[in-house]
């Protein structure tokens, strides 16, 4: 029983450390990849603003293709 308790305390301690490391690494990753030009995150912020049906999506969802053909067939 004692032993389990000790193991658990260590586990808990290291989980906390790991969490901190993971979250810091994540935010570093986010900023670095944008700096290197691999990703542009901020453009997605426009999703809430340009949300009319007639607005062009930032990236088309490909699945849409098959349905488009269907709707053409129907009309």
């Amino acid at each position: 029983m004692e032993l389990i308790q000790v193991i658990r305390e260590y586990l808990y301690f290291f989980t906390t450390i790991a969490l901190v490391v993971i979250l810091y690494a994540y935010i570093l990753h986010l900023y670095r990849s944008e700096k290197r030009g691999e990703a542009d995150y901020e453009k997605y912020g426009r999703l809430a603003l340009d949300d009319e049906l007639s607005d062009k999506p930032i990236e088309e969802n490909i699945k849409k293709e098959s349905e488009k053909r269907e709707s053409i067939k129907e009309s």
């Binding site: 994540y26 990753h29 986010l30 990849s33 990703a39 995150y41 997605y44 990236e59």
Partner: peptide, 8 residues
């Protein structure tokens, strides 16, 4: 690397 997650 991670941005695919928000697309799925």
């Amino acid at each position: 690397m991670f941005s695919w997650l928000e697309k799925n």
